[in-house]
Design a protein around this nucleic acid. Sequence first.
DNA 1: CGCTTTTGACCGGCGC
DNA 2: GCGCCGGTCAAAAGCG
Length: 220
Amino acid sequence: MNPGMSAADLSNSIPSVSSSSSEDLTEKSTESGGKPPEIPSKGRKKGQKRIRQPRFAFMTKSEIDHLEDGYRWRKYGQKAVKNSPFPRSYYRCTNSICTVKKRVERSSEDPTIVITTYEGQHCHHTVGFPRGGFVNHEAAAFAGHMTHRIPPYNYYHQGSVQITQENPSVSQCRQELTPPAEAREPEPCVLLEGPELPTTSLPTDEGLLGDIVPAGMRNG
DNA sequence: CGCTTTTGACCGGCGC
DNA sequence: GCGCCGGTCAAAAGCG
């Protein structure tokens, strides 16, 4: 990745959609990995084509890195990334049949902001309320969109935005993410990273949602 | 005892 | 062609 992932850039990237550069990383990640060549049949296939998984990222104002979203995640890696003093954590759904992955990193500018990137779609139900019972409802909502139709109760009118945070004052999140002295526009807290997303204009809720959730799934 | 987390090493892709 | 970087795996350790 490059100097395009910093929080400062993040703010800029949010309104529009993430570029394809970061997307490539995800793609390759689906198969690449450090494993002895002597054990090719461990799950990674060299010749296998990288499958483009729908991805979306959203920011959460929270002190907790790993927000509950109704699913159980197992951490499988952690890496220090450039342009950020905070390490990035990699999680995978504990459900063996589910290939959803999640990346969690803190904003280098606002340590209180956690950037969560989901990749893939859940193919199973949530597990309920694991660990203490606190569930990040917005995250759960997003996660829920993956498999079920749930009321978009927390969506912004821009249709592309969803903000997640523990505090009820959602608008605050926007302010937090808005550069103090920069061109301030209504900036969504959600990044959608898909194979082909419109870059010239903000996608509609249909467009964005469509990238996240199959039409058949979300249609009520 | 089983599951989760931690940590280091390795691989592949991309940029220069 | 080389180096950098991100992403993943696997073994070991820790915890419930």
